[in-house]
């Protein structure tokens, strides 16, 4: 599984990094630290037909988004 650390990245980096990772791997894990990035990455992945699960990480406002194509 490819892990993408998009924490602290400005828009649209989280989605762009996810897009690039999904082009190379079927299973991608994306780390984000705000709701906007979480929603954007989730929407992008679902639009690509992937299955998306989101879990809250240990740190406040951080999420782990698991994407499976």
């Amino acid at each position: 599984m490819k892990t993408v650390d998009a924490r602290g990245c400005a828009c649209p980096q989280p989605v762009l990094m996810t897009k690039n990772a999904m082009a190379r791997d079927n299973n991608v894990e994306v780390l984000v630290d705000n709701n906007t990035a979480k929603n954007n990455v989730e929407r992008f992945a679902k639009n690509q037909g992937a299955t998306v699960t989101i879990k809250a990480a240990d740190a406040p406002d951080e999420y782990v988004i698991t994407i499976e194509k």
């Binding site: 828009c11 649209p12 989605v15 762009l16 897009k19 906007t36 929603n39 929407r43 992008f44 639009n47």
Partner: peptide, 19 residues
């Protein structure tokens, strides 16, 4: 709504996301 005039055009081109 996370309104952004740039993101509307940018995301439509880059990600086919028209939201």
């Amino acid at each position: 709504t996370r309104f952004c005039t740039v993101a509307g055009i940018r995301d439509s081109i880059m990600f086919k996301d028209f939201t």
